[in-house]
């Protein structure tokens, strides 16, 4: 049995095919779902792919949040389904209040494009179950607004409940507490700025994204 992964595509999304490719290579079955649909079909898990949903007008994710498909995504997440937001997808999840906090412009105002080394801080999440705490992964980053920020209370809550799942070994964007990825209380919704789907083949320079994508497929099957 293979996992059905819905890959959400808004106008302006540009990483949906990379995600679909990585999912296929690992034995999953991706379906690209357009933003104006109201159902996720028979999906076992959802990926909100990166890009510039609705042109990032107003704020990244601000308009995507009101796309019809997001109601289905919220419902799916609240029922415990695995939802992963990558890069712009992370911004969409924060704007949708499925994850706390916000992503602001990188410190130094530079668009960051390169490989970042991440440390797995928690393997109790839909994206990191197949990893060990302390694993270091080289994963591409590609963003201008990836500087994670949140209130002091939220940060304390994230720390105390083991909800910071990935940290940068060297902080590229000014994110508070070196945060690269966080999860929700239920640990089924995960957002991260780096792109694991672009690191699933040694030809691309790293296949460190494989354990992350594999975790997602396993989470999908577990909830199926």
């Amino acid at each position: 049995m293979s996992a059905n992964v819905a890959v959400v595509r808004f106008p302006g999304t540009n990483c949906e095919f990379d995600v679909a490719e990585a999912v296929t290579a690992l034995g999953g079955e991706p379906t690209i779902v357009f933003h104006d649909e109201v159902s996720l079909g028979s999906a076992d898990s959802v990926v909100i792919a990166g890009g510039f949903a609705h042109g990032d007008y107003l704020r990244p994710g601000a308009i995507a949040r009101f796309s019809p498909i997001m109601e289905a995504v919220s419902r799916f997440a609240l029922e415990g389904g695995a939802v992963i937001g990558i890069c712009n997808g992370f911004q969409v999840l924060c704007e949708s209040h499925l994850l706390p906090g916000a992503l602001q412009k990188n410190a130094g105002l530079r668009f960051k494009c390169g490989t970042a080394r991440l440390r797995v801080e928690s393997n109790r999440s839909a994206l990191t179950e197949q990893c060990d705490v302390g694993d270091e992964l080289d994963i591409p980053i590609n963003h201008f607004e990836g500087n994670y920020t949140c209130s002091e209370e939220t940060l304390a809550e994230l720390r105390d409940n083991d909800r910071i799942v990935l940290r940068y070994v060297e902080n590229p964007n000014g994110s508070v507490d070196d945060i690269a990825g966080i999860c929700n209380e239920g640990r089924n919704v995960v957002g991260l700025m780096p792109h694991p789907e672009r690191a699933c083949n040694p030809l691309l320079g790293s296949n460190d994204g494989v354990p992350l994508m594999r975790s997602l497929l396993e989470s999908a099957l577990a909830s199926a």
Partner: peptide, 8 residues
């Protein structure tokens, strides 16, 4: 709900 993000 829309024009600003109260977090930031």
């Amino acid at each position: 709900r829309f024009l600003s993000n109260p977090v930031i």
